[in-house]
Design a protein around this nucleic acid. Structure first.
Lengths: 182, 182
DNA sequence: CCAATAATGTTAGTCACTAACATTTCAAGG
DNA sequence: CCTTGAAATGTTAGTGACTAACATTATTGG
């Protein structure tokens, strides 16, 4: 990560990373499947999966996702927050890496869809809801990372999902109406 | 695309593509920046951008996105629909390519965010709304592609955005309430 | 018909990533 | 203390995506 910060992601070769770690390139690839994986190697990722699975099943599916994600992100210890922000910023500043976030989101999306369809929601509706949910949350996450020192990540997540739970089109439509006469 | 269908995306080398096209690898890379770009090279992509930009500016932002996208997708001629579906299916079946959809969505996202903030919506809210909007639409698109012969893409888009414009949490919450007593 | 320009070919290289096999490390059992 | 077997690491050689530099061949405008 230090090398990435200094020379950028593309400007850093696996050979350099391996050398800095005192190993060979092959050994590097025995620990990380790809160079990208270094950046996505988040110790809190499994935590999210665990917390999500542990949510009260009597709660509505989206509510479960909301509280689960908020709890997971809230569990990141204070000192690690800045490191996490740096990591996300590095990702956000690189088109291919940014797209990679969605590879990570796939598991969560599947989780949401399964939960929703299990409670009688149609397949299409479930997928759209899950997609929108994750789209909104990821946007909130990226926005948070773009700030210099915002600390209220769980709060942001809640706010984002509140927007979704309410009416996305609501405020936008109202503002749009005003748009006609400025 | 024929080669991809036969041997799969990863199983097809640029050398093979170039040979099939009767050119060299270098010439290939003069036409496509990456191998991935072949799959994302959609003649209707610029159309979408144009249609979106041409939308009535007095309409609310999300309404503009909705009608714009629906019109753009609706403008795809009948014969091309199946080719488009195949293309999207190829993408959907490949983790890295699927994530690449979000690289394409960036332009649209920026468009939505700009439109929303321009009408008084806060930055965070705009980003979340745009993310949710595109998340839902992309989910609908992928779901459509997963079907053998669904033809009503624009309708799907409208339905997806109707879900978002209404209450995402609404139906899900209702189903969730019923969840407590099955 | 010729000159400028664009498209293509050739060559050689970098870098991510993999397979196959050799070597080291090291903990546990004799 | 030695040994043995597994796990981690090293070595070598290769593939495939992608790039830079330069040579060559169309194309097109005058």
């Amino acid at each position: 990560m230090a090398l990435f910060r200094q020379r950028g992601f593309d400007g850093t070769t696996v050979a350099q990373i391996a050398a800095a770690a005192g190993v060979t390139q092959v050994t590097f690839f025995r620990h990380f499947p790809t160079k990208d994986a270094v950046v996505f190697d988040d110790p809190y990722d499994p935590v999210i999966a665990d917390v999500m699975a542990a949510q009260d099943r009597t709660l509505p599916a989206l509510e479960r996702v909301r509280t689960g994600l908020a709890a997971a992100w809230g569990s990141i210890p204070e000192p690690a927050i800045n490191a996490t922000r740096d990591r996300i910023r590095l990702i956000a500043g690189h088109a291919r890496l940014a797209a990679g976030i969605w590879e990570n989101n796939r598991r969560t999306e599947q989780l949401i869809v399964t939960a929703l369809t299990g409670t009688g929601v149609g397949r299409v509706e479930a997928r759209v809801a899950a997609g929108a949910c994750l789209g909104g949350l990821t946007a909130a996450l990226l926005d948070w990372a773009s700030e210099p020192d915002g600390q209220d990540l769980p709060e942001r997540m809640n706010a984002a999902l509140a927007l979704l739970g309410g009416q996305i089109g609501g405020p936008a439509t109202a503002a749009g109406d005003a748009d006609g006469s400025p």
